[in-house]
């Protein structure tokens, strides 16, 4: 037992410093999904949108070396996929779960297809330089919190600003109230002069963009190269974290950080216990997410019109 505690203490700084970048991709996707679901659209295609983001971000960075451009194009590509989901579910009232599942596989297939057609014959997997982290003299050198607060990469800061904007938008603007109304009861929204379809399209496209950014973050910041299926179910964890977060971005952020921390812990434990097959530890973040949801999820009020198509009468 004492050896466990000493390992834990040893790992604590690693976990605290490592959790932010590990949380970033999942938070990006979960934040988008939160806006989606607040408008009543369930997007189960996040996994596929993230996968598309991983390859598009990688290809653009590999060809141009411009990581900002890479993130934007990756986001737009996934937003296109989200638009497809929107056309199916909003305009043609297809079941959201069915369409979302299809989108997942489309993203999965596209990511592999694009990679194989561009790099299929490469003898060793191509790599890009991961994006640089910030260094501010003195500030970043402060022990522990210096690196945590002032030593992240620019995308993390951009994400944080997006989070602040989203939080404000959802609860302190008229458009945010309208969006939440669409998620509760699109008919009421319509009667009050709000166009439900418009808000749902907006939410889906934003959600898709964020999923693409999250995917690109995995290749461009965490790994530096692409391999198949590298999101490993993170898209679904993002959906789960929205439930944990009770449709409040702040709570989604906290949930993402917990996920990130457990993820780093798993990576570290893997090296400490080389004899245990690593798959055992790789279950940890997912088990942790499940436990989190069980602890808080059951009593939450979900948007009343979540996953219900809006069909007008008359």
């Amino acid at each position: 037992m004492s050896s466990f505690i000493s390992i834990f203490m040893l790992l604590l700084p690693t976990v605290v410093l490592g959790m932010v970048p590990r949380a970033a991709p999942i938070f990006a996707a979960a934040l988008g999904e939160n806006i989606d679901q607040s408008a009543g659209t369930l997007n189960l295609g996040v996994e596929g949108m993230m996968l598309l983001g991983t390859i598009i971000g990688f290809v653009i960075d590999f060809k141009t070396g411009d990581f900002v451009l890479a993130f934007i194009v990756a986001g737009l590509a996934s937003a296109l996929l989200a638009l497809l989901h929107g056309i199916a579910t909003i305009s043609f009232k297809v079941d959201q779960v069915t369409s979302g599942t299809a989108i997942w596989f489309i993203g999965w297939g596209l990511s592999g297809f694009i990679y194989s057609s561009l790099f299929g014959k490469a003898s060793s997997p191509p790599a890009v330089k991961t994006i640089p982290t910030l260094y501010i003299p003195h500030l970043t050198d402060i022990p522990y919190i210096g690196k945590l607060l002032f030593g992240q990469d620019p995308v993390v800061y951009a994400l944080f600003i997006t989070f602040l904007v989203a939080q404000y938008f959802l609860f302190h603007t008229k458009a945010g109230l309208n969006l939440r109304t669409v998620g509760e009861d699109p008919l009421v929204a319509e009667i009050m002069g709000v166009n439900p379809d418009l808000y749902r399209y907006f939410a889906l496209i934003f959600g898709g963009f964020m999923a693409g950014v999250g995917g690109a973050y995995i290749t461009l910041s965490l790994v530096g190269s692409f391999y198949f299926d590298m999101t490993a179910g993170m898209g679904f964890i993002a959906v789960a974290l929205v439930y944990f977060g009770k449709w409040n971005p702040l709570r989604v952020l906290i949930g993402s950080l917990v996920f990130g921390a457990v993820y780093v812990l798993y990576l570290a434990l893997e090296t400490y216990f080389p004899t245990t097959p690593y798959q055992f530890f790789s279950m940890f973040p997912y088990i942790a997410t499940l436990i989190l949801i069980i602890l808080v999820g059951a009593r939450a009020h979900a948007p009343a019109a979540l996953a219900l198509p809006y069909i007008k009468e008359g």
Binding site: T173, K174, G176, L177, T181, E184, D185, G193
Partner: peptide, 24 residues
């Protein structure tokens, strides 16, 4: 009723308001 049960009365009355800027 065309009301959102989980919203407050004033939130319900604010849905779809057009005048007075972006902020709620």
């Amino acid at each position: 009723f065309s009301l959102i049960p989980v919203f407050t009365v004033k939130e319900n009355l604010s849905i779809g308001l057009r005048d007075g800027g972006f902020r709620l």
